[in-house]
Amino acid sequence: MKTEALYFAIRNTKLLVGAGIILVLLGIGVIGPFFIDKPPTEYVGMQMQPPGGEFWLGTNTFGQDLWAQFVHGLRTTFLVGALGGGIAAVIGMVVGFLAGYKGGWIDEILNMLTNIVLVLPTLAVLFILNAYIGVRSAGMQALFIGLTQWPWAARSIRAQTFSLRGRDFVDLARLSGVGSGRIIMREIAPNMSSYLLLTFILLFGGSILIASSLDFIGLGPTDAVSLGLMLQQAHQWSAMHLGLWWWFVPPGAGITLIVGALYVANVGLDEVFNPKLREL
């Protein structure tokens, strides 16, 4: 089973291309900052320099190094994506597993909660929160995204759990005196592992997109640089009119690449795990 998945994985171009792009960008975001000694917001030199030997991606109207910003921005973006996606995935799993396995009134209560969060006007809530919390960190942003993005994951996990619950091996585990928590973790979850991975990837990509949009409308972190914030500043200081394409193209391309590659990898993974989609 596992070797079979591996067999298809290393032959799936979509997965290889998607994962390759992600790994390269992740590498830049993780390792890159160690090679840049100055903080990304420092004014390092000439203003509005086009990309060149000294400043790879040029400088902006304030004389900040855009390569430094891009590298740190990638790091923040990945961090928000992983954290936001991770929080959403964990909440989605807990709610989905519990509701699907336990059923009855627990299911009804959790379902109600899911539906409430699902229809919550996220943006309005964020504006209100923003008014109360002054300094926003990337972590806060991730937390907020995680807390609002779990419902659809919970719903689909619930549905899958519900159908697995009816399988005989779950009954057999109960007949072996195994408790509910262990049954969920050790009987049901392993059967959905590929699905859970796909869910996490989708949440990861979704979080990055949401974070970028939040950054762009000015609700981004105040103490860090992110790709979304770079875009926002480029927009605010009329980079487009001034012809400073190197200010907004790299962060825009970065976000598009990450999210696009994630989705391509996701489609590839789907083909690896789902025999019906495989091309023989």
Binding site: M1, R167, D168, F169, D171, L172, L175, E187, P190, N191, S193
Partner: peptide, 14 residues
């Protein structure tokens, strides 16, 4: 104890 109908569904396939 019990034994069920479908031998393949009675075992966790993974």
């Amino acid at each position: 104890q019990g034994v069920f109908q479908d031998p393949f569904s009675s075992y966790n396939p993974v």
